[in-house]
Amino acid sequence: MKRISVQDIMTRKVVGVDQDTPLSEIIRLMSEKQIGSTVILDKEKPIGIITIRHILKMAEKCTPPATVKAQNVMTHPLITVKPDVNLRNASILMLQKGIKKLTVVENGKLIGLVTTTDIERVFMPFDSPFEIIKNESAVSVGLREEFQRDMEKKLVEEIMTKDVKTVDSSMKVNEIAKIMNATKIGSLIVTKNEKAIGIVTDLHIVRRIMNDGLDPCTVTAEEAMENLITINPKDTLKNSVEKMITNTVKKLGVINSNDSLVGIITTTDFLVYYRSLLFRQKILEK
């Protein structure tokens, strides 16, 4: 079996900008291209990286992004790998450094980016429950049909995340960013009078607050939130995935018959569950 290396799976179209680029321009690029990171260059040499987390830190401090240059906020020195490094070694390096992205460099120049998600795709036949519903995954027909049958029987409450983090509708966006930075959570449910009314995500803060030049110290959660699509805990996984597809979302608030928030279900919850099933099946086959 051919050894898989970083260059076999890396993303080759990587956005790189000069170290003197204002953070506001980087935010614009990340929002426009819908990407989660930008590599920072000194001429053509990669020297750092800026991710959504860096921008959240600026939101936390209410720092106007136009006043900050990339070199002042980027993570550096940059951790890089060569394109011929095998995936096992790349994975170990990510774990050791506590990172989810590695910049791929050849002869001192940026040629790609590899993430933990890229590596997971090699070993798992799907990276979204949407693929199972739409029959688009690389899973065998028999296994896919088994997963689909399971989705029709298993309930949302069986795999949802029950420990839901919430924020009051009056909380300012900079405080929300502070919570996200401290907890490494990418979304928070917004409540008003103890009822869930919306959701704020890290991407929303970057693309619609920081990118639009709004002040995170004055914008409230209620002003910044997106509509929260909900589902009942007794509903099936199939219905929840179909609702995600219909509404183009990856998260659903779980509201019981008493109109109380009891959990949240995300595409990640599905992947954790179905990948565990797949792993157990492989163990049984052995």
Rank of each mutant, 00 (worst) to 15 (best):
E106M: 02
G108V: 09
K109E: 13
L110K: 05
G112P: 04
G112S: 06
L113F: 05
V114N: 02
T115R: 11
T115D: 01
T115C: 01
T116W: 02
T116V: 07
T117H: 03
D118A: 03
D118N: 09
R121S: 14
M124N: 10
M124S: 07
P125I: 04
F126H: 10
F126W: 04
D127Y: 09
E131A: 14
I132G: 01
I132P: 02
K134Q: 14
K134G: 01
N135H: 15
N135L: 13
E136T: 12
A138N: 13
V139W: 02
S140K: 10
S140G: 13
L143Q: 08
L143K: 12
E146P: 00
E146Q: 07
R149N: 13
D150R: 05
M151D: 00
M151F: 11
E152M: 02
E152K: 09
E152F: 07
K153F: 07
K153Q: 12
L155V: 00
L155P: 00
E157W: 10
E157V: 03
E158M: 06
E158K: 07
M160P: 01
K162N: 12
D163M: 07
D163K: 15
K165W: 11
S169H: 15
S169W: 10
S169E: 11
S170L: 11
M171L: 13
K172I: 06
V173Y: 05
N174K: 11
N174M: 08
I176V: 14
A177W: 00
I179E: 02
N181I: 10
T183F: 09
K184D: 15
I185D: 10
I185M: 15
I185G: 07
G186C: 09
G186P: 02
G186K: 14
I189L: 04
V190R: 09
K192D: 12
K192G: 10
K192Y: 11
N193W: 04
E194Q: 14
A196D: 05
G198V: 09
T201A: 04
T201E: 01
L203G: 12
L203Y: 14
I205L: 08
I205M: 10
M210G: 05
D212C: 05
G213D: 08
G213K: 11
G213Y: 03
P216A: 08
T218L: 13
E222H: 12
